[in-house]
Design a protein around this nucleic acid. Sequence first.
RNA 1: GCGGUUGUGGUGAAGUUGGUUAACACACUGGAUUGUGGCUCCAGCAUUCGUGGGUUCGAGUCCCAUCAAUCGCCCCA
Length: 416
Amino acid sequence: MNYQTPRGTYDILPEEIAAWHEMEEKIHTIAKKYHYQEMRTPYFESTGVFARENDSSDMVNKEMYSFMSGEESYTLRPEGTAGIIRAFDQHKLYGQELPAKLYYMGAMFRHERPQKGRQRQFTQFGVENIGAKQPEVDAECIALGIDIVKALGIQSVKVCLNTLGDDASRSAYKEALRAYFEPHLDCLCGDCHRRIKQNPLRILDCKVDHEQPIMADAPKLHDYLNEESKAYFQKVCDALDALKIPYEIDERLVRGLDYYTHTVFEVISTREDSGAQATIFGGGRYDHLVDYFGGPDLSGIGFAIGLERLLQLSKDDGYVYQESGNCDVYVIGLGEVGSASLAIANELRDAGFTVEANYLPRSLKSQFKSADRVKAKYIVIIGEDELKQGTINVKNTETKEQVTIPMDALVGYIKG
RNA sequence: GCGGUUGUGGUGAAGUUGGUUAACACACUGGAUUGUGGCUCCAGCAUUCGUGGGUUCGAGUCCCAUCAAUCGCCCCA
């Protein structure tokens, strides 16, 4: 039978894996610099962890991979935050020092129509800072993401920033939006008819009705922010200024998940060819997730980066990743010397080198070609004659210099 | 979930109004040189054109379905 990867999934082949390792390592390093610690949660959770009450997001309502196991419904995680907060509460991590600074890296699953920069199984790195509702934390969080983007050579980015305000501000604004749009229902698309009931904020984000004249005069969120919310947002902006991180305030930015409060942000690629993968990372503050899962009344903030997009955009911007599969030393064997080749290879491996040894009955010529392919720096040649004499030939592939030395001097010679 | 485009070997691809042996290039394998590579030359490498049906004397070429890729919408990372 011929099987292939399910729609929206993909294989990472050996030739690409070095780039992934390099990117992942850089991310781990930066997360550590900000003193975040990795946490790993299951790839599936009880469906209720993601499908919370009154959630109107597309992700929860039509993009989840859910399945029954016995009486319980489970769902492949479509995002990272919910699982982290569930675990934070389950293990009562709020009993330890706050804020908790956690990060995760791994696969997420959403049933969407795939296209460039959008898969059904994709990889996210994300951070969650829980228990410190301070504007500096919001700015630091964005700075961490920017560091990652910069470390991978991505230049053309833009930070979009907005605030949704606190509960009081937001519910006042939602009522104002409903009151404004109700008389104009016939001007809005079908999705927006649903949104006006569930989450009128999303109407502003609608691409279909974007051009409608009524949008221009819609109530402005920022007119409904109370002093406290305004002051908080101003301090976030000040903190970003202090970090010299440029940003644009986008009042229409509301994000796709319903749990956000106060600060929300999105970092997008400004490359024209980025298409559907324009958003590199996005996130925001959430005031009620920790208590939703049974913990205390703590606020958190976090973001998630799509690693497939990050990798692609970094390549597009000219970042060069290490090649996969190259060797330091290639051991060529001539005649019946297989076990001697193996012993030599392992001696070199013990000394820390990456070594390939040929055991195939191939011609000398083809073994040299093979050594070229793995870009070996040294080629070691052992034949039956050398075996008898206890010597070995070593060729430097850059200088083309070849020497014959005693076998026990090999490691020392290659170490230089 | 909706709409457009595409689908020939490991890769890039030719394939004429359907006509019967599926170009060419690169890569790969072997040889020329049975112990020294990256050049050259020679040879080999798709019983088959994403898959399944249909039309036809005859289909890679036409029709339908299906799967996949890709782009746009929606949404998001």
